[in-house]
Design a protein around this nucleic acid. Structure first.
Lengths: 344, 344
DNA sequence: TTGTACGCGTTATCAC
DNA sequence: GTGATAACGCGTACAA
């Protein structure tokens, strides 16, 4: 769009002796032209080397086909795989994505949202945790969140409760003497909290003793290793010779813990069973492949975009359809049994 | 942009008894107004709850501030971290990013580029390998590639040659008897080929015997494991009791190989030294932390965006500045010594 | 089936 | 320092 070196509908119109309107119709409603004339225009497009300009179209009809995304980071595999799957829905839906890395900074994310609104996004997908859903809802545009507090907006989440049940259930079926869950002290209103509840309910149902380790362990490898070393020490003392089934809130933690054990004992001791969460690459690539609860990230991504587009389409009708109540979709997790629970 | 529920410059103009032009100036050249009037307008913006519309601005001045990105996937950590760092440059440059996952499908990627052009991106960053740089150059817009064939376009790459030297050099300094490099059979015109050359040159310089394993090993864990098992067998037979220094083309391969060794011997045998490439999380989280050559992804991303914006700005001048020759920037890799080469 | 005329919300060019 | 007016390129009633 530098100067005026662009071929426009006007140019094509003059070239073909049609009007601008007819050219426009060629793109948006070709059937309303005769086949003959369609070919004439098609040829003109080639002759003049026309390149479409969606910016002008947006200004005229208000449809950007933009969806905004606020994601905390792409460092964690969970997020990058989710973004991968979300972006890939372009093939089915045609919506383009404007992506911002939030880094969990509230004010920064507000700025990003403002920028997204300036570009007239038609909907917003939020994966970061900072901005309350009430504030998001007040933006007055279609919104879907993924795995975060979602009281006032539509969302797609893994069935974390079921995940917790699956993990604890597997450990229980293997006749562990004590079930342990290691997690961060997550707030009760985020979906991930369900993992803890599922774990607890199974423990109570099976009447097995259990212990929770809930604390913030930081995000870097060093800090994680330290905290997990402490926990290992505690477990060794407290539950000597008892069969310990440990459910970690993610595979990275499970892997670090596994490595601590292997470095101490040369292998995974018989009295330890380990299961992680996420089915991230590390769970497969670990020295001993780690059992895990897999989130169906492709499904989550697809459902999130679908749900968003439903809302977008609802508003486009003559009599706009607004949801009275936010819709919350839930995706079933998948139990993956690997060596850390199924010894050979 | 649904109907006409948007406050526009016209509304503000009427409200403040200024003209549209003055309102526009308030945003683009505030100093040309009296402080007093600036405040009047500022207040009006709040009163009317004005929200800016960058789509209209784009149509008027042609500056989208969009940069397109074609990236093969976000499954490999290298790509997701790179995308993270690229997107994060928004804070410094203000450019927004439209991201497409190419999946290395040539025709698909051409479609994506067409779509990006329709949205009037000002520049394009390409990480995928399918479309020849000659074709990219012919698009006639600023382009920067990262770690791919870049004969006809600007690029930013890691100094792969130096990386190969560093890796082989480290193994040589540890008095390995035989240096081995395991890589895919990459084309000679991609930057990664430099790793092989660097490795070879050091081998020749130090007059150490060496062997190259260059073959396609696939991308899934199973297939990789199979191929690496074969290679391990071959090495065990051929170089029994000799100190083997092995340089892998990435950390994932190094980690799988390491795990094969540990599962066979219970630990990493004395006669094996291992070094990977990329400094990806797995290199730190491996059972035995893996020495590796780290790419400075943040620098690469920053330089790529900078280089792109330089080109963009060059074209905006009255007398547009076009590069006669593509600029190729090179970023130094960093040698990270860990346990797989530095035994305790 | 095709054309006319105007609107979308901002910026650019002059003029004052 | 401020204003009137014409772009920017496309969509869409409404008319023919």
């Amino acid at each position: 769009m530098g100067k005026k070196n662009n071929v426009t509908f006007d140019d094509i119109a003059k070239y073909t002796n049609f009007s601008k309107t007819t050219i426009s119709r060629y793109f948006n409603n070709p059937d309303s032209l005769t086949l003959e004339n369609q070919e004439v225009i098609a040829k003109a497009l080639v002759d003049l080397n026309y390149k479409e300009n969606k910016v002008a179209r947006i200004l005229a009809n208000g449809q950007t086909e933009f969806i905004g995304i606020i994601i905390p980071n792409l460092f964690l595999h969970y997020y990058s795989e989710m973004l991968d799957k979300i972006l890939s829905t372009y093939e089915q839906f045609g919506y383009k994505f404007l992506v911002f890395i939030g880094n969990e900074k509230e004010e920064t994310e507000r700025r990003y949202i403002k920028e997204l609104l300036a570009y007239k996004i038609e909907g917003l997908i939020v994966l970061s945790h900072t901005i309350p859903s009430e504030e998001l809802a007040a933006l007055g545009l279609p919104i879907v969140t993924i795995e975060r507090e979602d009281r006032w907006v539509c969302s797609v989440n893994t069935d974390n409760y079921m995940g917790g049940c699956q993990a604890a259930g597997l450990l229980a079926r293997h006749h562990c003497d004590i079930l342990i869950h290691i997690n961060s002290s997550s707030a009760r209103n985020v979906p991930a909290y369900g993992r803890i509840q599922g774990f607890l309910d199974i423990c109570k149902e099976t009447k097995l003793p259990y212990e929770l380790f809930l604390k913030e362990m930081g995000n870097n490898h060093e800090s994680l290793k330290e905290h997990l070393t402490d926990i290992l020490c505690a477990l060794e003392q407290k539950y000597t010779d008892r069969k310990k089934g440990i459910f970690f809130s993610n595979d990275t933690h499970a892997n670090i813990f596994l490595n601590l054990l292997v470095r101490k004992y040369g292998s995974l001791p018989e009295d330890y069973l380990i299961i992680g969460f996420d089915n991230s690459p590390v769970s497969r690539e670990a020295l001993i492949p780690i059992s895990t609860i897999g989130q169906q990230i492709d499904k989550i991504a697809y459902e999130a975009v679908s749900l968003l587009i439903e809302q977008i389409n609802g508003r486009k009708k003559r009599r706009p359809v607004l949801l009275k109540e936010p819709v919350h979709k839930v995706i079933t997790p998948v139990l993956l049994k690997r060596e850390t629970t199924e010894r050979i």
